Simulated scan of single mutants.
Amino acid sequence: MLTSSYPVLCTDDVTASARFYVEHFGFESTFDSDWYISLKHPATGTELALLAADHASIPSGNGVPARGVLVNLEFDDVDALASRLAAAGVPVVQELRSEPFGQRHVIVRDPGGVLVDCITEIEPDPEFLAAFGRAD
């Protein structure tokens, strides 16, 4: 029986990546070493971990920083968050925008290169309602 699941992102700088999620998104450390940091959000229980890409626990030839990963984080007010992230100098790779499929979001890059999609759900356009099991 599955008891838990969370992403572990390989990175070249575990400390910098962890600091990013703590500082900008409110995660807290639950385990902290120089090669692995486990994070948990106190309000939601969402978990995320960072692992040194060169750590010996990773099978030989597979320890590369995470690329092509999109971490979705949902918020009550992405507009306010986007303003705070921009003011803090967080690299924005896609400006804040609304999507017809029901998301308002901004995409930023963490220090390890992982894309973080910060989302507030909005009402989808009518052509997407069926995808949500709605026919309003």
Rank of each mutant, 00 (worst) to 15 (best):
D117G: 02
T3D: 13
A49Q: 05
V64M: 13
K40V: 06
A16V: 14
V78E: 05
V108F: 03
V69W: 00
F128K: 12
D79M: 13
N72D: 13
P100S: 14
F25M: 06
G68I: 10
I122Q: 01
S29L: 07
P126R: 08
F132L: 15
R104D: 13
V8K: 01
G102D: 10
A131L: 15
S57L: 11
E23N: 10
E47L: 02
T11W: 13
F128C: 00
S4E: 15
R84M: 07
S38K: 01
A86F: 05
V64Q: 11
G102R: 08
R97E: 11
V78I: 00
D54S: 10
M1E: 14
A49N: 06
S17P: 03
V8S: 04
M1C: 11
A130W: 07
D13K: 00
E28H: 12
F101S: 11
D79W: 05
V108W: 08
D54N: 08
Y6V: 01
S4Y: 09
Y6C: 02
Y36N: 08
A80I: 05
S98H: 04
P91Q: 10
S33W: 03
L115I: 01
S29R: 15
I119V: 15
G26P: 06
P124K: 06
R84K: 15
R104M: 05
F101C: 07
A130D: 07
A43N: 14
G68F: 01
F101L: 11
G61F: 03
S4A: 14
I37Q: 14
V106F: 07
P59D: 10
T46L: 11
G63T: 10
A87E: 14
A43L: 07
S57Q: 08
I58Y: 04
R134F: 07
I119P: 08
L2D: 12
L73W: 07
H41Y: 09
D13T: 10
P65I: 00
L96R: 15
E95G: 09
Q103P: 07
G45V: 06
L51E: 12
A18T: 08
R19E: 14
S60L: 11
P124H: 03
P124T: 02
P7M: 09
S17Y: 05
A86T: 14
P126T: 14
F31L: 12
G61V: 10
V108M: 01
N72Q: 13
Y6F: 15
V93H: 06
P59F: 07
S5Q: 10
L2C: 13
T120Q: 14
I119W: 10
